[in-house]
Amino acid sequence: MGRLSCIPTVLFVILALIFAIDIALAQKDQNAGAIDPKGEQGSLRSEDCPEACKYRCSTTSHKKPCMFFCKKCCAKCLCVPSGTYGHKEECPCYNNWKTKEGGPKCP
C-alpha cells in the first residue's frame, strides 16, 4: 500500500518536467525566427540569392516572375526555403511578407 501513495507524486514530477521542456522549446522556436536589428534574417548573403532562387524557381512554368519576386524576397530576408515548393516555415520573413491583397509575396 505504501508504494501506491508515491505514484501521484511521480506522475506530477513527470508532468512538470514535460511542461518545462515544452516551454523551453517554445522559447527556442520564438528566438529562431527573431529578426536582427537591420530588419533582415537568414544566413544567405545577397550574392547567394540568384543561385538559391534559380533552384527555387526551377520547376515553375512562370520562371521570370518567380525569379523576380524570389530575388526581391531573398534580398530582404536573406533566406530562401529549401526545395522548389513549400517549406516556407523555414524562413518566417519570406513566409510572412504579403501583397497588398494579402496573398504571399514570395514564391
Rank of each mutant, 00 (worst) to 15 (best):
C73S: 03
K63P: 01
L17W: 06
K100V: 07
W97N: 08
R3C: 03
T99F: 14
C6W: 13
C91I: 06
D48I: 03
M67H: 01
C66S: 01
V13K: 03
K105L: 13
G39K: 03
F68E: 10
F68D: 04
C70H: 00
C70P: 03
I21E: 09
G102A: 14
E101W: 12
C6Q: 10
K28V: 01
A52I: 07
H87G: 10
S82E: 15
A24C: 03
K63Y: 05
I14D: 01
H62G: 08
R56Q: 03
G102V: 12
Q41L: 05
C6V: 15
L78N: 03
C93V: 00
M67N: 02
K63V: 11
R45A: 06
R45M: 06
C70I: 12
D29T: 15
I18G: 08
P92L: 07
T9I: 08
A52M: 10
E51Y: 09
L17R: 02
I14K: 00
E101D: 13
D22N: 13
K88G: 05
K38F: 13
F12S: 09
S61E: 07
G2R: 13
C79A: 02
V10I: 15
H62F: 14
D29S: 12
I18D: 06
Y94F: 15
F69Q: 00
P8D: 05
F69T: 03
C53I: 00
D36C: 11
K71D: 04
A24W: 08
H87N: 15
I21F: 06
Y85P: 05
G86P: 07
H87C: 09
I21V: 06
L44F: 09
P8S: 04
C74W: 01
A32Q: 11
P81H: 04
L25R: 12
P50D: 08
K100W: 11
I23H: 14
F19E: 06
S43M: 11
A16L: 14
K71V: 06
C79V: 02
C79S: 02
K98C: 14
T9R: 08
E90G: 04
Q41R: 10
I18S: 12
G33Y: 04
N31S: 11
G33C: 08
C93Y: 04
K100D: 10
I35M: 10
P37L: 14
A75S: 13
